[in-house]
């Protein structure tokens, strides 16, 4: 018995390492670029977007995994999209009701979680082939990986672009480089982050 639980523990750690570091959906797999760029103007927006996407990822992975034997192979993508769209509508309405300010600032990008490639990619490559519990765990870890990546980009952009972090003023009300709050800054910060990840990966590969 202890051996089994030990194995399960290793698996969970493995899931987290996979979702957050080794196969980080944004920095390594390069999926879900639109929300990463569009909702990373402030850390609060990024956390909201990350939480919404994580919720959808867990629920859709769980539902798709439960239904994986019922969904015919030929129309599986359409079926996945309907399931995902259902959960996205739920989170959209919930956010409008309970956090209207956040819902307003994320705007169009909440319904657009439907076409976030991370969610469809996990449904297709993981949830359709695995049991419900690992699938939900995969959704959770991938969601956390996405949220962390989004928050890194957003923290840099908020500090440089508006001189605040989570709304607190850092430099006495002045913005050091307001360009980072604008669309161009989003591309720039994300480009440098991915370059950093590639640099770290190549160094790790070189020492081996």
């Amino acid at each position: 018995m202890p051996k089994v639980s030990n194995e399960a523990k290793i698996n969970i750690a493995q899931f987290f390492r996979n979702g957050i570091i080794e196969n980080n959906p944004t920095f390594v797999q390069l999926l879900g670029m639109c929300p990463t760029l569009a909702t990373s103007t402030s850390l609060l927006n990024a956390l909201g977007m990350g939480a919404a996407a994580t919720f959808v990822l867990i629920c859709s992975n769980l539902a798709i995994s439960l239904l994986r034997k019922l969904i015919p192979q030929k129309i599986r993508i359409a079926a996945y999209i309907v399931i995902i769209a259902g959960f996205v509508t739920m989170i959209d309405l919930l956010m409008q009701a309970f956090v209207p300010a956040l819902s307003n600032s994320l705007g169009l990008f909440i319904p657009l979680i439907v076409v976030n490639c991370i969610i469809l990619a996990r449904a297709e490559s993981f949830a359709s082939k695995n049991r419900p519990l690992p699938s939900a765990l995969d959704g959770l870890t991938m969601g956390i990986g996405f949220t962390i990546a989004l928050s890194c980009v957003a923290a840099v952009r908020e500090i440089l672009g508006s001189g605040t972090l989570l709304g607190f003023e850092l430099f006495g009300g002045t913005a050091p480089l307001s360009i980072f709050a604008l669309p161009a800054g989003g591309f720039l910060v994300l480009g440098f982050f991915i370059a950093l990840v590639q640099f770290l990966k190549s160094r790790k590969g070189g020492t081996k």
Partner: peptide, 16 residues
Amino acid sequence: PFQGFPIALITAALLS
């Protein structure tokens, strides 16, 4: 480190 995706993003930033 900039080959591939990162340089594309930085190009997009300049275009933006």
